[in-house]
Amino acid sequence: MKKSVFLGTLAASALLAGYASAATLDDVKARGELFCGVNTALTGFAQPDASGNWQGFDVAICKAVAAAVLGDASKVKYVPTTTETRFTALASGEVDLLARNTTWTYSRDADLKFTFTGVNYYDGQGFMVRKDLGVSSAKELDGATVCIQTGTTTELNLADYFKANNMTYQPVPIQTNAEGEQQYLAGACDAYTTDASGLAATRAIFADPENHIILPEIISKEPLGPLVRHGDDQWADINRWVLNALVAAEEYGVTSANVEELSKGTQNPEINRLLGTEGDLGAMMGLDNEWAKRVIAANGNYGEIFAANIGEATPIGLARGLNAQWTQGGLLYAPPFR
């Protein structure tokens, strides 16, 4: 009897386990809502606005995927995650997609079993200090107290950088960007370190941004991108090509303003394939042919998203730099749509 109960249990749980790993695309469609993991609050990247709607550069990725898969960019449930909870949230299936300033690294890809679907922001780690501290280079930070978000790549880079330069520091571990901002402003740390884009975003909301400087040293490569779980290639493909569509649209001059007109057909076959007027690209991923058109109509192309959320016209004021198109000397390079 004992054995049969055990075997029965085995069989039952095997069935459950099999059911749990169904395709993410079908789950999202059946649910009618995309669960998207975002930052708890980082101005310009992911933050609810005054009326509670999430806005930002990373949020735009969630919206674009929802537009492609569900046909409606507003059908997203945003799940705020901290640096410590984000991977657990994705691995456990609490979110379908994590778009949260997450650095693409070897071990996160190979060991944590996630698939990065591209890079939406090429970043690097920097330091912010008060101007009156009289520091003009990160090399002068020997002995400083540094606020650092735990569970991040920046935490490891920081240790490496100080060791390589034979300097010491005192870490002040923090959980969220808001906590870091509070500790930094209270003077509990001399320097705040995170991705340079995050520093710019944090400084933008200070009462006195002119009294803080971001030091020139960029001490690491931080390719930030959206990621999904390993093992569902179809879902990874959809996310990868949504991002590529945003980049390609900028390259070909497709914007939210002219996408409707261009989708009637153009002289450029690449645009025609992208927008679904030619060929059958959508069906190859299990979507309809107009997915990319909806993606661009929802938020605009990559350049429009950048300009609206973190570009030079916004308080954050980030230049395109590495995030310009390859034709402009940047690193954005979408593979061909064919």
């Binding site: 640096t83 410590e84 991977f87 691995a91 071990s107 996160r108 060991d111 944590l112 079993k113 735990t150 569970g151 935490e155 490891l156 571990p173």
Partner: peptide
């Protein structure tokens, strides 16, 4: 339970 968990997964 914090940093090690997060860095190693």
């Amino acid at each position: 339970g914090g940093i090690t968990l997060n860095q190693t997964g």
